[in-house]
């Protein structure tokens, strides 16, 4: 091993923004892809998948129940994974006072939230896609059997849900002190209250996800419009996170 020396220090590269985003994403993936971090979310994804399989096998009106189950629990599981990982992605550093270590490079205030969001979205999206795929496979050969076009909708919804929810919870974690409580509150408000009122439905990601899944509760929204809305929401949340870090990183204490 090389002994530590002031003189023979390795040269640090000047990082471009995409390179910095990649490194921050890598940092978050290293932290997330540990069994100790991941097991609750793996277990929840498995439980949701088994629940869908049980409905398909044992429910009399399996097709209706299954569609409702996917809309509700299939998507909500992705939201919960994004909530758990998204809030932790920033909170573990802010609470530990370690966020400053990562923010001393000028581009880090932009790269950190995007990189961490990407990592959370990739993990939440992968679990969501896996779950949707298994749910779709579970319907094969049953009365609830879905065509390939439905699989495409399921996978698209899973990916967009992971992107939109991860961005939301990373932004909340950067903006709010009680990030988990705020995130749960937001999720309950958006998914249960806002979607019940037509006027508020337009600000709820779940409304657009329902449109992608062909849910009757969102009849006036086309799939293209829903995709655009979810991508727009994701971008808005990321901008909010970046703005907050640029203005005042949350670890700064008075004293």
């Amino acid at each position: 091993m090389t002994a530590w020396s002031w003189i023979q220090a390795p040269e640090a590269r000047k990082l471009s923004l995409p390179a910095a985003v990649g490194i921050h994403m890598q940092v978050q993936l290293v932290r997330t892809l540990r069994l100790r971090t991941l097991w609750p979310w793996l277990a929840m994804t498995l439980a949701v998948t088994l629940g869908g399989w049980a409905i398909v096998r044992f429910s009399v009106e399996s097709a209706d129940h299954f569609a409702e189950y996917v809309d509700t629990w299939g998507i909500r599981a992705i939201a919960l994974v994004a909530l758990g990982l998204g809030t932790a992605a920033v909170r573990q550093d802010t609470e530990a006072g370690a966020l400053a270590f990562f923010l001393l490079r000028p581009q880090a205030k932009t790269a950190l939230p995007i990189g961490r969001w990407l990592a959370v979205a990739v993990v939440a999206g992968a679990l969501g896609v896996l779950s949707m795929l298994m749910l779709w496979l579970a319907t094969r050969g049953t009365s609830a059997e879905m065509p390939f076009t439905d699989l495409a909708s399921l996978l698209l919804a899973a990916v967009l849900a992971a992107m939109a929810y991860s961005a939301t919870f990373v932004a909340i974690a950067i903006w709010a002190r009680a990030a988990v409580g705020m995130s749960v509150g937001w999720l309950v408000l958006m998914d249960n209250l806002a979607t019940k009122s037509t006027s508020f439905a337009a600000i709820a990601p779940s409304h657009y996800l329902a449109a992608i899944l062909g849910d009757e509760s969102a009849p006036e929204t086309t799939v293209m419009a829903a995709v655009a809305a979810l991508l727009g929401w994701t971008a808005l949340m990321l901008v909010a996170a970046v703005v907050r870090l640029q203005r005042e990183p949350p670890m700064v204490q008075q004293g």
Partner: peptide, 28 residues
């Protein structure tokens, strides 16, 4: 910078944390 406070991300290790910080500072 060494900020005030005595806590660090609990699941990280000394090597992983310092390596991550150095990677973010542009080291390969």
């Amino acid at each position: 910078l060494v900020p005030d406070g005595d806590s660090l991300p609990k699941l990280d290790t000394p090597l992983s944390l310092v390596t991550m910080v150095l990677r973010c500072h542009g080291l390969v």
